[in-house]
Design a protein around this nucleic acid. Structure first.
Length: 921
RNA sequence: GCGGAUGUGGUGAAAUUGGUAGACACGCCAGACUUAGGAUCUGGUGCCGCGAGGCAUGGGGGUUCGAGUCCCUUCAUCCGCACCA
């Protein structure tokens, strides 16, 4: 009987399906554990070896926790709405639902091949109406809620209306527009339309005109994180700013809670830092400066109010509304020219020429409230309209950009930090003592900041202000393949559709071309859009992140038709205990899902406000591409070492027909028709390819399909090899070479149990202390390594264990049973098979995890390294029960040591019991 | 520019957190069994040196009896953000 992994794996995969061993109940006397993967977008390319890295980790962990006595929720599904399917539909006319279903089928087959323990009865698909019904429902909750800054949580919009009817909006200033102010009487006098317009400024999901990233080539609006260097992430098409009426989520109201929540979760420091940067909290002050000969005021935001005596000029954004009002007639022509220049510059240019200093003087002067100094007001593109107040007070001695600006335009620089400023570059210190600063002279900057703000508040021209870089999240897409908004417009006023009419299903369309004026394809279906005279549907759809913002909740209760997930069930499963996925979702998906969770928590639908307790970022598996070199204009290929002698074209070649770096030339000729007649210039009889590490992608022919490896070595080998590659968090190029070693290990393990001729050879003898030591060393190492996601070291511990047991010929049931249970999470098929072969009828999944007993690994002796001045010279086996004096005596009596000491006595003897002994001379 | 991470043999990587650097594998070398082997098994394999021995964790410095691990400094690579006042 040899290790026939193909038969074994097929048998157990069928057996698992048949006996429903992975179905999980929503209650149990056992403690719960929720282990989740970021669900994939089912692309047409299928899975490559990079995808399962995370999935295998979670599967091992989930199986491990189950053996440890937990009720484990471990699920998989598909993030199935999205642009690629729609692009494909545009090109081929195939309905996205059709291609998506096909892709899902491929993914499922590939996943099943690897032997995962998902509870597939809970599978979800975000494009399924039974799922997006609840995405739409949650959207309506967002639409019907506002953020109460007094209670610091989301509340139903009716509590806001009640407040308006009582006190107007005095207690609840408008987050969308601070200038909106009204009394209770005024509120009651407004028409319904006016009231709803005001409420819109408060809703968590709201409509606003805003500049969006408009990509004409894709015919759609893109999120900031879908725009890279001014072009679309997909396709690399140009992106421009365009004003459109868009849905937004008021995530900025949650900025502070999203920030504070990071303290309560276990994410990597890198991940937390990325989110902190994205949220970008800063504390400072808003200050109003009077303008000379004008009633206008210019309001700036600064984080450094302490430097107010160092203000030498003001800069406002070119888009700032004050520009037209304060520009003097003499400067008008210059300013107009500058504005024209700014408008002519694409987003891309502005980004790529960050260091260039440009600007223009308005002719107006602002007045420093403390010393009455008049400083010029400039406009410049380095000041952004969208951040703070769109205006700054410039302190060139303390801020490098202000300094560069002052130098460029020859503006005088006031020094308020004495020797701290050297005149050649700005010094942004906060630790100087102020000089040249009126009433602040001699005060340190940190203290001065508070003094200034207090004084400004007293004078009524300034106040403390916290700002965030984060913007509200755009939530509309002019696309077809997404969730339709459950919204209708009556005379242009948006209303929620009735909950009982959910889901609002995505209608069928004839084609996927964008609608008129940048609208989505839905706008083309006029009889769907126009419900009644004056009543129209929303034609935008929701963005890709809508469905993924809450899917972890649906897995808990996937078939519930009354609610998105029953409160009792979400209370039971609670937070995701371990969430595994790539870093690319650091600021998108992770922030949105954290926000949705907080909203649902505020509204009382769930009982926790952080979705993911622990996050592990799997590294990216890169592709290791191979290249061949074709002599230009011929069909002759030259080996890598000889290529410099010719003029060649470098071509990607399929990594699957290259062994290491050696090309299989026959396979190459068959690979593509155009190479059928290829000839080769070889080195030492071989064609050597070039290699480069690149992203794994079909177009680079460097993808490796897990199916091929599973076919050749088996799922168990594949699983363990992926883990053996290195720490899960680390990115590394894929290399199939080492898989043999893991395969050998499994064959060796098999031979511990089964002899080719004799069959099962396991005995019932009692284990020796040596065997128990091998086992318990393995238990200790594997248990803790699995628990800490250090799977690569666990695999090596398995190898050591099996090597040791093989070399002493141990075939004892007592030992081997435990080894199998340890192995079951890693290589579930072979573990089940051997478990059955040694006589168990029940699945190994329900066996108890072995418990480490220290007594078996305890030694009476320890082989001490004996070092002289910290350098190991020899070793001695000495009793662990010896005290330091006895150890010292034994060491000094040692022949080698005496020779080394050469008659001299050591100055000091350092003894670390059970570790080492060091002689200092 | 700011923030984060990483740097260890020919390769992937270990190292109980300050205590024998290179476990476990791949690759390579030698051998055994073989008609054969891309099967299996045995031994070897950081570098220099015939050897005793010396040198080695990106470089330089420091703390310590002892540093891959802590501190300072410097270089390189990768990732994220990027005119955020």
């Amino acid at each position: 009987m040899e290790y026939n992994f193909r038969a074994i794996e097929k048998k157990w995969q069928e057996q698992w399906v048949h006996s429903k061993v992975y179905q999980v109940k929503n209650d149990s006397s056992k403690p719960k554990c929720y282990v989740l993967d970021m669900f994939p977008y089912p692309s047409g390319a299928g899975l490559h070896v990079g995808h399962p890295l995370g999935y295998i980790s979670t599967d091992i962990y989930a199986r491990y926790k189950r053996l440890k006595g937990y009720n484990v929720l471990h699920t998989m599904g598909y993030d199935a709405f999205g642009l690629p399917a729609e692009q494909y539909a545009l090109e081929t006319g195939q309905h996205p639902a059709v291609t998506t279903a096909k892709n899902i089928k491929t993914f499922r087959e590939q996943l099943d091949n690897i032997g995962f323990s998902y509870d597939w009865s809970r599978e979800i698909n975000t494009s399924d109406p039974s799922y997006y019904k609840w995405t739409q429902w949650i959207f309506l909750q967002l639409f019907e809620s506002w953020y109460n800054r007094n209670t610091q949580k989301a509340e139903p919009i009716r509590t806001l209306i009640a407040a308006f009817e009582k006190d107007g909006n005095a207690g609840n200033p408008c987050p969308g527009d601070r200038t909106i102010q009204f009394t209770a009487e005024q509120w009651k006098s407004y028409s319904e339309k006016e009231q709803r317009e005001i409420l819109m400024q408060y809703r968590l999901a709201f409509l606003a005109y805003a500049e969006v990233n408009w990509c004409a080539a894709l015919g759609t609006v893109l999120a900031n994180d879908e725009v890279v260097n001014g072009v679309s992430e997909r396709g690399g098409y140009p992106v421009v700013k365009k004003k459109m009426r868009q849905w937004f989520l008021r995530i900025t109201e949650y900025a502070n809670r999203l920030l504070d929540g990071l303290e309560t979760v276990e994410f990597s420091e890198a991940m937390k830092e990325m989110q902190r940067n994205w949220i970008g909290k800063s504390q400072g002050a808003e200050i109003k400066f009077a303008i000379k000969n004008s009633d206008e005021k210019v309001e700036v935001y600064t984080t450094r109010p302490d430097t107010i005596f160092g203000v030498d000029f003001m800069v406002i954004a070119p888009e700032h509304e004050l520009v037209q009002k304060i520009t003097t007639p003499e400067q008008k022509a210059a300013i107009d020219a500058y504005l024209e220049y700014v408008q002519s510059r694409s987003e891309r240019e502005r980004m790529s020429e960050v260091k260039q200093v440009t600007g223009c003087f308005t002719g107006a002067y602002a007045i420093n409230p403390f010393d009455g100094r008049e400083v010029p007001i400039w406009i410049a593109e380095y000041v952004l309209a969208g951040y703070g107040t769109g205006a700054i007070m410039a302190v060139p001695c303390g801020d490098q950009r202000d300094f560069n600006f002052a130098q460029h335009f020859h503006l005088p620089i006031t020094n308020i930090i004495g020797e701290g400023f050297n005149g050649t570059e700005a010094n942004p210190t906060k630790d100087a003592i102020l000089q040249n600063s009126g009433f602040l002279n001699g005060v340190d900057m940190r203290t001065a900041a508070d003094l200034v703000i207090d004084k400004l508040e007293e004078m009524g021209i300034g106040r403390r202000q916290i700002n965030y870089k984060m913007r509200d999240a755009g939530f509309s897409r002019q696309r077809y393949w997404g969730e339709p908004f459950p919204i209708v417009y009556k005379d242009g006023v948006p209303y929620a559709i009735d909950e009982k009419d959910l889901p609002l299903e995505l209608p069928h369309v004839e084609n996927y071309k964008p609608g008129p004026e940048g609208e989505g394809p839905l706008a083309n279906i006029t009889d769907w859009v126009n419900i009644a005279p004056g009543v129209k549907r929303e034609t935008n759809t929701m963005p890709g992140y809508a469905g993924s913002s809450w899917y972890f909740l649906r897995y808990m209760d996937p078939h519930n038709t009354h609610t998105f997930a029953d409160r009792k069930v979400t209370d039971y499963w609670n937070q995701v205990d371990v969430y595994v996925g790539g870093t690319e979702h650091a600021v998108g998906h992770l922030l949105y899902s954290r926000m949705w969770t907080k909203v649902l928590y505020d509204l009382g639908y769930i009982g926790f406000q952080e979705p993911f307790k622990q996050l592990i970022n799997q590294g990216m598996i890169q592709g290791s591409s191979r290249f061949v070199y074709r002599i230009h204009g011929t069909n002759q290929f030259v080996s890598h070492g000889l290529k410099d002698q010719y003029e060649t074209d470098k071509l990607h070649v399929d990594v699957n027909i290259v062994d290491g770096l050696v090309l299989d030339t026959e396979a190459f000729k068959k690979w593509r028709e155009e190479f059928a007649g290829a000839t080769f210039l070889l080195e030492d009889g071989q064609y050597i390819c070039g290699q480069e590490v690149e992203k794994m992608s079909k177009s680079k022919f460097n993808t490796v399909n897990p199916n091929d490896l599973v076919e050749k070595y088996g799922a168990d080998t594949f699983r363990m090899y992926e883990m053996f590659l290195g720490p899960v968090e680390q990115s590394k190029p894929w290399d199939t070479k080492g898989i043999e070693g893991v395969h050998r290990f499994l064959k060796k393990l098999w031979r511990l149990f089964v002899d080719e001729q004799k069959g099962v050879v396991v005995t019932d003898e009692n284990p020796t202390p040596e065997e128990l030591k091998i086992l318990h060393t393995a238990i200790h190492k594997i248990d803790s390594a699995t628990n800490t996601f250090s799977f690569n070291t666990a695999v090596s511990a398995f190898m050591i264990c099996v090597n040791d047991l093989t070399s002493i010929g141990c075939r004892k049931r007592n030992i081997l049973e435990s080894v199998l249970i340890l192995l079951a999470p890693y290589a579930p098929h072979v573990a089940e098979e051997l478990w059955q072969l040694i006589g168990f009828n029940e699945s190994i999944l329900n066996a108890p995890y072995p418990v480490y007993k220290e007594e078996y690994t305890k030694e009476s002796n320890f082989t001490y390294p004996i070092a002289l001045n910290g350098k190991t010279k020899t070793e001695m086996s000495l009793g662990l029960d010896l005290d330091n004096a006895a150890l010292e005596a034994a060491v000094l009596a040692n022949e080698t040591v005496q020779k080394l000491l050469d008659g001299k006595a050591p100055k000091r003897v350092i003894i670390v019991k059970g570790r080492m002994i060091n002689l200092v001379v």
